[in-house]
Simulated scan of single mutants.
Amino acid sequence: MHTAFTRGPVADIFSSYLVAVSLSAASELGVLDALRQQGSYSIEKAGTDGLDTRLVRQLLVTLSWAEIVEVAEDKAVIGPRFDQAWDARGYFYWMVRGCGELFSVLPGVTRTRARVGDYYTRDMRAVAVGSKLIGETEVEPHFVELLGELDYKVITDLGCGSGQRLIGAVSRRPGVRGVGVDIAPAAVDLARNSVEQAGLSDRITMVSGDVRNLEPLPEFADVDLITCVFLGHDFWPKTTCVEGLRKLRTAFPNARRLLLCDVVRSEEPPGADTTIFTLGFELVHAAMGVYLPTRSEWYEAFRESGWVLNGERDFAAPPLGILFDLSPES
């Protein structure tokens, strides 16, 4: 009997999947937050919070396999890999909660005859939350720095997701107004709630729309700064990307700057040094039929659509992330 697979690398792949699922769940349930704040977590107290203590224990036991926590009796404490898991929690939430249903139907969506209409589902609220957490490590600090150097009166965020970027940009500048645009109703609702909680409903407007095909609206007339984060690949393939970028110039006639941040396609084969997110990001978008451009392909699209590249910044997290600083061609 060939039973070598029951231990070792292949068995670890199986267990690692379950760790990813448990890490995502622990993040959503607030278990990771409690561990981060207190250094320990009472499994018994989970019951008073309305959680199934047996399941919570099993989630933590699964995380202990990866040394993220250590479990003893009715308590869990942070393990040697907790800090890295905390920093990476957005990636796991994006993958498991946001894209889990898509992964479960991969055989079906691989068959081209099944690719009709809305042939896949993702939890776009979870994608927005995961993307927010992913961006907090490097992307948002870069944005805060760059926005501090720019003069703008009205900012729009394309694919605004949870709305946090827009809220930050507006709250840091008295008198500045904002417009959020997102195609997903769940993300728009999440952003509206966030804006209301921040007390900025009088300064930030939310618009439902497809950023690839925007027409001029009264809300867009005075926008002088456009931001677009983790959404640029949705403009592709190239013909639609060029057309979509041209339409941005028409929809936002007074825009003087476009800050476009996206993750580009890897041009190296996967190996021991393959970074987190890279395989997942590329697999998910292949399943959705979305083309991922390389850096050089973006350069071509900018030139052909009338946007001038002022500069760019590379990110370590998310891996292969780039912030393009663009201005409309005069």
Results as ranks from 00 to 15, higher is better:
residue 2 H to A: 15
residue 3 T to N: 15
residue 7 R to G: 08
residue 8 G to C: 11
residue 10 V to L: 14
residue 16 S to E: 07
residue 16 S to C: 05
residue 17 Y to F: 10
residue 25 A to P: 01
residue 27 S to Y: 13
residue 27 S to D: 15
residue 27 S to R: 07
residue 30 G to M: 14
residue 31 V to C: 06
residue 32 L to E: 01
residue 33 D to M: 10
residue 37 Q to S: 08
residue 39 G to T: 01
residue 43 I to E: 02
residue 45 K to Q: 10
residue 46 A to D: 02
residue 46 A to E: 01
residue 47 G to N: 08
residue 49 D to W: 08
residue 50 G to I: 09
residue 51 L to S: 07
residue 57 R to N: 14
residue 58 Q to F: 14
residue 63 L to S: 00
residue 64 S to F: 09
residue 64 S to I: 09
residue 70 E to I: 00
residue 80 P to K: 04
residue 82 F to S: 00
residue 82 F to A: 00
residue 84 Q to K: 12
residue 84 Q to D: 11
residue 86 W to K: 01
residue 87 D to W: 04
residue 88 A to H: 14
residue 90 G to L: 10
residue 90 G to D: 12
residue 91 Y to L: 13
residue 93 Y to S: 09
residue 97 R to F: 10
residue 100 G to C: 12
residue 101 E to F: 12
residue 101 E to L: 13
residue 102 L to K: 12
residue 102 L to W: 13
residue 103 F to Y: 15
residue 105 V to M: 14
residue 106 L to W: 09
residue 109 V to W: 11
residue 109 V to N: 11
residue 114 A to V: 04
residue 120 Y to M: 08
residue 120 Y to L: 13
residue 121 T to K: 12
residue 122 R to I: 14
residue 123 D to S: 13
residue 124 M to I: 05
residue 125 R to H: 09
residue 126 A to P: 08
residue 128 A to S: 12
residue 129 V to T: 08
residue 131 S to I: 03
residue 143 F to G: 00
residue 143 F to Y: 15
residue 143 F to H: 05
residue 144 V to A: 15
residue 146 L to T: 09
residue 151 D to L: 05
residue 154 V to Q: 01
residue 154 V to R: 01
residue 155 I to G: 01
residue 160 C to S: 06
residue 162 S to V: 05
residue 164 Q to C: 02
residue 167 I to R: 03
residue 167 I to C: 04
residue 168 G to S: 09
residue 170 V to H: 08
residue 171 S to I: 07
residue 174 P to S: 08
residue 174 P to W: 07
residue 175 G to T: 09
residue 178 G to Y: 09
residue 182 D to A: 10
residue 184 A to H: 15
residue 188 V to L: 09
residue 191 A to T: 05
residue 193 N to D: 08
residue 194 S to P: 00
residue 197 Q to V: 05
residue 197 Q to S: 07
residue 201 S to G: 05
residue 203 R to L: 10
residue 203 R to S: 10
residue 206 M to R: 04
residue 207 V to T: 02
residue 210 D to Q: 03
residue 215 E to C: 08
residue 217 L to D: 10
residue 221 A to E: 15
residue 224 D to K: 03
residue 226 I to W: 14
residue 227 T to P: 12
residue 227 T to E: 14
residue 228 C to E: 13
residue 229 V to R: 10
residue 231 L to E: 14
residue 234 D to P: 00
residue 235 F to L: 15
residue 237 P to W: 11
residue 237 P to D: 13
residue 242 V to R: 07
residue 244 G to N: 05
residue 245 L to E: 03
residue 248 L to P: 02
residue 250 T to M: 06
residue 251 A to T: 03
residue 251 A to C: 04
residue 252 F to I: 02
residue 252 F to P: 01
residue 255 A to G: 02
residue 256 R to L: 03
residue 258 L to G: 01
residue 260 L to F: 06
residue 260 L to A: 05
residue 265 R to E: 05
residue 267 E to D: 03
residue 271 G to Q: 02
residue 273 D to A: 03
residue 273 D to Y: 02
residue 273 D to T: 06
residue 275 T to Q: 05
residue 275 T to E: 04
residue 278 T to N: 07
residue 283 L to K: 10
residue 283 L to M: 14
residue 286 A to R: 15
residue 289 G to S: 12
residue 291 Y to H: 12
residue 292 L to K: 09
residue 292 L to A: 07
residue 293 P to E: 12
residue 305 S to C: 03
residue 306 G to A: 03
residue 308 V to S: 03
residue 313 R to D: 04
residue 316 A to G: 05
residue 319 P to Y: 05
residue 325 D to G: 01
residue 326 L to M: 02
residue 327 S to V: 10
residue 327 S to H: 03
